[in-house]
Design a binder for these strands. Sequence first.
DNA 1: CGTTTGCTTGAACGTAGTCAAGGTGTGTGG
DNA 2: CCACACACCTTGACTACGTTCAAGCAAACG
Lengths: 244, 244
Amino acid sequence: MGESGLAKHLGRYVELTVSEQRTLLHLGGATRSYRRGAVIRREHGQSSELLVVQRGWLFCSLATEDGRRQIVRLHYCGDLLGTDMLAFAEAPDATIALTDAELCVIDRERLGAVFTDHPRLAALLFTLQQIDRVTLMDRLVSIGRTSALGRVGALLLWIEARIRTVGPRVDREFTLPLTQEEIGDATGLTAVHVNRTMRVLVEQGLIARSGNRITILNLERLAPIANYIERGERFDTSWMPPAR
Amino acid sequence: MGESGLAKHLGRYVELTVSEQRTLLHLGGATRSYRRGAVIRREHGQSSELLVVQRGWLFCSLATEDGRRQIVRLHYCGDLLGTDMLAFAEAPDATIALTDAELCVIDRERLGAVFTDHPRLAALLFTLQQIDRVTLMDRLVSIGRTSALGRVGALLLWIEARIRTVGPRVDREFTLPLTQEEIGDATGLTAVHVNRTMRVLVEQGLIARSGNRITILNLERLAPIANYIERGERFDTSWMPPAR
DNA sequence: CGTTTGCTTGAACGTAGTCAAGGTGTGTGG
DNA sequence: CCACACACCTTGACTACGTTCAAGCAAACG
């Protein structure tokens, strides 16, 4: 423990009071470690745990009838997981560790207490969900209406943007933790075509690659191809109850 | 006014107290009417209104760089709209009336009051968001990993299921309010291919069509093709604060 | 050292897109 | 009341993007 990933995450958007920070800290229970590839939650499983990512990357995926797979979300430090089990009896997706990861279990009852004791925190959590929803919408557009080049490009830009929020850097270079198979599952393409597509991205001077280090070389040209929009996330706190 | 679509919607999942129902009723302000095709909210617009659908169907869509369009959500009576503006300065999607519709404006400040005065209602609204999120995930899988036949089939099954929640009927017949162009925008296909695909659905005896009346003829065979899963939505209220 | 996992490339195929033309139904104005 | 316009649906021929199947290769791992 020692520090709440969730508080750090929320702190990116708003100023938290000491009391709020303490409450978020006390939310967290045991910390668990997972190795890359470990199944944290099984699709259709009953596990109704709430988890916060403390370290590492995860993804959530759904399997199709015919054995294929779609990765629907990527998760990073600070993300709150398992909230879907508040509305569903069975886990709608599987959660899998993309890198070695540490998660922190959150007590469901204590989440309830947050809603009574810290209405502003509840409002902030509600607002946080909106980002998740809009991210899903953006991915839907990407997969539904752009070319393979655009889809893979968009995924790279999203990941790069997210990495930049954690440690802001100028060089637009990062380590891609996904295999080409996983990129395919995230973009709705086959691994083979992801390979060809990334080669084209390199040939066109849009990105550079060495191993799994990726550099965005030409954002100005890549962004329109990928239909990439930088969404300015700015929490509107004006309507929220006062902080406690 | 007279009755809150939102309360009716929530009432499908949980028992609301009289006080909660009254609070939801007082949330609603003016009612507005829109004609089919009317733009309720413009993409990238600043309008930060919260709305509840009282009557009719809406859809939310995003435009791509090259002028194409992706419909990301369909909305029906009881749905709460505009919550994304709590986190974003610009509207991420456009909201358009699919049929003639009536919406009810919700005061942002009063939503804030709900979080302080009715923590359980806040928890319920939070839970409601989860359904929205999971719906988006399901659509992502549909578009990313299934054939045209499956995508169109899934859309029809979702719509039929939603219509059934309002007025439960056995015959699995309904009026489809979407043009083939709009079905294409929702499924990531072209209008032309939607046409061919629907013909195949008919030829294979999966559905029947006359005008825009659709009948699901063979759910057992269509469901696996469409990768369709009936998700049992059951709100877990055990963790929530007591109702007021 | 052998096996596995992931990357790469080629060739053939197939699903969905594009372009084009004609048809149907509805609403509007002459 | 009819003619026209418009929106939507339908079908055909051709194209192209992404898939499938297959094989070879490199790096990591037990």
